[in-house]
């Protein structure tokens, strides 16, 4: 392993085929340009973290991949197929509560399979298995308001992953949780992801989270007209423990390097808002 982390080649990009390709994408709302000329490739099984100051249009990139928003320019493709309209082969972990409040944990996790027309008996086996996997055995009949914030996140994870999506998108998924629950959920997420590696695009403003979870960290410039300014491979060994990895000297070096790049953008962003 090389000690000069920044010079390291992005290994994953070269080896694996790219699962998500963002080509020259510009996202705009009327005359407001959120992101401009973004090029990103995410390899199959690669965990990509995107960091940037608040209001830099990070979420619009995810929404472009999900097909919820249409790029003003450029194209997005998943596994070689162009994204056109809402995608069903992805899993999206939202920052906010996205569960249906009138359905129980079981019914919420079941949704994706039900919409795909899977027979009841088959669904039941999978839903129960997933609820157990995320540690919610015995909570099947609870409504979202009867679950804690962390438990609701677990339900959301099971809901998003049960359809075995090709790409998992995460929009500051744990930012609403307290720090201990957050560490717990991050480890949980890494465990699930390690079992069955999919391409992940995670957006966060928390640089520690970005490094601790990701294979690669991409830094976005301050908005508007945000773009990718730098890309850092993260060569920390897996499996990782999110709480402990922060003491690793390699982690600290990486943090310093990426922060040097991010800091200027955060300052610019503060000056504008």
């Amino acid at each position: 392993m090389s000690s000069t982390i920044r010079k390291l080649k992005p290994v994953v990009e070269v080896q694996a085929k790219s699962m998500v390709a963002i080509d020259d994408v510009t996202m705009a709302f009327g005359t407001f340009v959120a992101v401009q000329d973004v090029n990103l490739k995410v390899g199959d099984g690669e965990f990509l973290s995107i960091v940037g100051p608040t209001g830099c249009g990070k979420s619009t990139i995810l929404n472009a991949i999900a097909g919820l928003l249409k790029p003003a320019k450029g194209a997005v493709s998943i596994d070689g197929a162009a994204v056109n309209g809402v995608q069903n082969n992805i899993g999206y972990l939202f920052q906010q509560d996205a569960l249906l409040p009138w359905k129980t944990a079981y019914q919420n996790v079941e949704l994706g399979l039900m919409f795909r027309g899977m027979p009841e008996a088959e669904r039941r086996v999978k839903v129960l298995a997933w609820l157990e996997k995320v540690g919610l055995k015995g909570f099947e009949a609870r409504f979202p308001h009867q679950l804690s914030g962390g438990q609701r996140k677990r339900v959301q994870m099971a809901q998003a992953l049960i359809t075995e999506p090709k790409v998992i998108l995460m929009d500051e998924p744990f930012s609403a949780l307290d720090i201990h629950t957050r560490h717990l959920m991050q480890n949980e997420l890494l465990r699930l992801w390690q079992e069955d590696r999919r391409a992940v695009v995670m957006i966060t403003h928390d640089l520690e989270e970005a490094i601790a979870l990701g294979d690669r960290v991409v830094v976005l410039a301050a908005g508007p007209k945000s773009r990718v300014i730098e890309s850092f491979p993260v060569d920390l060994e897996r499996p990782r423990n999110v709480a402990e990895i922060k003491l690793d000297p390699k982690f600290i070096t990486l943090y310093r390097d990426i922060w040097a790049s991010l800091r200027g953008e955060v300052e610019k962003s503060y000056a504008r808002h």
Binding site: A66, L68, V86, Q87, N88, I90, G91, Y92, F94, A98, L99, L100, L111, G112, F115, R116, Q159, A160, T163
Partner: peptide, 8 residues
């Protein structure tokens, strides 16, 4: 959005 992504 979540429901639509889940395939609704």
């Amino acid at each position: 959005s979540n429901a639509r992504i889940l395939g609704a």
